[in-house]
Design a protein around this nucleic acid. Structure first.
Lengths: 198, 198
DNA sequence: TAAATAAATATGACCGGTCGTATTTATTTA
DNA sequence: TAAATAAATACGACCGGTCATATTTATTTA
């Protein structure tokens, strides 16, 4: 394996393990050594891939977000005349995944916002951009649903997208301590199944 | 000052500083030494007051919650025929306080749920009980408001209280990274000013 | 009541480990 | 061989926690 390919391979592995460990143990609760051991990269090599732990955290945030954007985008593209249904379907998939993990971890974005959202400027910037991308995509779906007549028009799609993102994050926190999917299911039912409907 | 009084004094100071530092830097981001220095208590004395950092964390959670319960209780007791107004008034006060702090910290319960809600059993228990007390009190207020005819009857007060707690927590996370009170204001407006109304 | 003893609390030096990072050495690539 | 990259090692600071000892308070005895 060529060096430059291996470099990309190591970088990717580090990011993946960073997502896993940061999500389950938090930023300050996870040492670099633990991540490096998990992907068999020597400690001295870390700074060849990332400038610092903080910079690494910011990159992990983006790396974590990507698949969610993809997944939601795919649902919206295949939704046909039911954008609201696509959004519900997307969240249902998330719920299945969270149940599979026994409600551990939750959402890296939410956890990081609470732990470092106002202390690390680098990560704050990264969180802002990740959440914005996510919110904007939900907004797009809600606009589509409004045009299709399944979502109310007297509230802006932006406002609803924000409310959905925020309530979902709060529900994930409750899920973690209650070890139950009830909060996140109720979030979807209350908003997507009731409040947002025409 | 007698020994037993000083002990209570030190304990209280430790809890207060614990609230401050944990809220702003997180649990793992805050060392015991930092807390001990802030209240001039020697390292070795800490374990006369608390069994471990984790036990201390659980106590800090309860200590943090108390004033909020008091404050909301007071509003509800003085509300007369407008329990919904009392709840709104209570949250308005919280918003003023958060603006005063320039959106730093947010809520210790939310931050801890994200950071340790599924890793520390001791703190998880403490978080469960703190959130339940808070939720139950909001539920009580909403029931009162339902009886007064200002809040819809076709949704249970419990469900609405949970939704309010969760959305508020999510909005606080957004507040922290956006450095703006818009999310928490929108939370109150959307739920208390719209969705919950008859 | 005074002295002697026991119990409780306070203390700071110190433990083994781990932290994130810098520097130095080795290896690869051009 | 020169430049670039990876890896090993070293570093001081700090982590949560322990422990023997010192000091204060409570209890017993005379």
């Amino acid at each position: 394996m060529s060096k430059s390919i291996k470099k990309e391979f190591n970088r990717e592995n580090l990011l993946n393990q960073g997502v896993n460990l940061f999500m389950n143990q938090g930023y300050h609760g996870t040492g670099l050594q633990e991540i490096l051991d998990a992907v068999n990269v020597p400690k001295g090599s870390f700074y060849n891939y990332f400038g610092s732990k903080e910079d690494f955290g910011a990159d992990v945030i983006q790396h974590y977000t990507e698949p969610f954007i993809m997944q939601l985008t795919a649902h919206l593209n295949n939704s046909g005349a039911d954008a609201l249904g696509a959004i519900r379907c997307y969240f249902d998939e998330l719920i299945v995944e969270l149940e599979k993990n026994e409600f551990k971890g939750g959402c890296l974005l939410g956890n990081f916002m609470g732990e470092m959202g106002d202390t690390s400027e680098v990560c704050q910037k990264s969180l802002q951009s990740a959440v914005k991308r996510y919110r904007d995509l939900l907004q797009l779906g809600l606009i589509k649903a409004q045009q299709q007549g399944t979502v109310r028009l007297d509230k802006s799609a932006e406002e609803m997208a924000d409310l959905l993102v925020n309530t979902w994050q709060g529900a994930l926190l409750r899920m973690k301590i209650e070890k139950s999917s009830a909060p996140i299911k109720q979030c979807c039912q209350d908003l997507l199944g009731d409040y947002f409907r025409v």
